[in-house]
Write a protein that binds this DNA or RNA. Structure first.
Lengths: 133, 133
DNA sequence: CCTTGACCTCAAGCTGGCTTTAATTGGCAG
DNA sequence: CTGCCAATTAAAGCCAGCTTGAGGTCAAGG
């Protein structure tokens, strides 16, 4: 199995080498040896980085991501917790959808004041996070 | 129009008073006067905070949120840019959906190594962020 | 053999987004 | 009028997640 220098991993994953070192430091990924001083990474690291990047995009912290997948990319958590995560994600997806619709509404609605527009207010109230206005 | 003390805004919006002061400092919200020392907020602030909270949940920075809505909650941006935002959100929604599915897969799939599982890999590759593995 | 350039370590620094602390102010109930 | 208590300010502090810089190492190519 061909090993990868950190530079190659960086290039192929789009994650900066400094960030990769940081990820290793905090235990998110593992290098499987050195060539001289240089860390060598296995190919599976690229897949792990896909997961990490995706998790980050999803708004999870590195700790949370580590907790979801374990450093080898295998799940550490019991199924129930993984499902709970998935459900939380679904809630977030709904939030995002609301926001997207709100944005589109704002772009298209000719009303002078959006905060007054009933349609807009309804959109806002659709969000679970909405305050007691 | 009844004005609100910061404490009342904090309670009703779920945003800490210190955070509200911070938001005002960076221009995200505006108080419309003082009663003695105390800031007074209008009711529209609550709606603005809904937007802000939602935007944050969506992973936008405060700067970005400010740019989307302006401090009065009205859009600053031309329609095209708002639509572009909405489209970006949609992309993020797809990412999240992929992640959610990946999580569910991991929870349910009995395969010993998920990184090897073709179904899982396919899920990963569905994400736009996926590296050149 | 020598140079080069990619990598190394460690420490410090930075940005964002707040929170905390300390010392003060002032509206309002009694 | 008194005193309480919520609110005020400025400055410092904190966490995450990296990046940057200085100074060092070493494998490979010419």
């Amino acid at each position: 199995m061909k090993l990868l220098d950190i530079g190659e991993v960086a290039e192929r994953s789009g994650v900066a080498a400094s960030a990769l070192r940081y990820y290793e430091e905090v235990g998110l990924i593992t290098s499987i040896g050195r060539r001289g001083l240089r860390r060598q990474f296995g190919r599976e690291t690229l897949l792990q980085l896909s997961l990490i990047t995706m998790g980050k995009a999803a708004g999870f912290s590195l700790r949370e991501i580590a907790g979801m997948f374990g450093k080898d990319g295998q799940p550490d958590l019991p199924r129930g917790q993984l499902h709970a995560r998935a459900d939380a994600l679904e809630a977030q997806i709904r939030e995002l959808t609301t926001l997207r619709d709100a944005l589109r509404h704002v772009a298209d609605c000719p009303a002078p004041s959006h905060l007054e527009c009933p349609k807009f207010q309804k959109l806002l109230r659709a969000g679970t996070l909405t305050a007691k206005v």
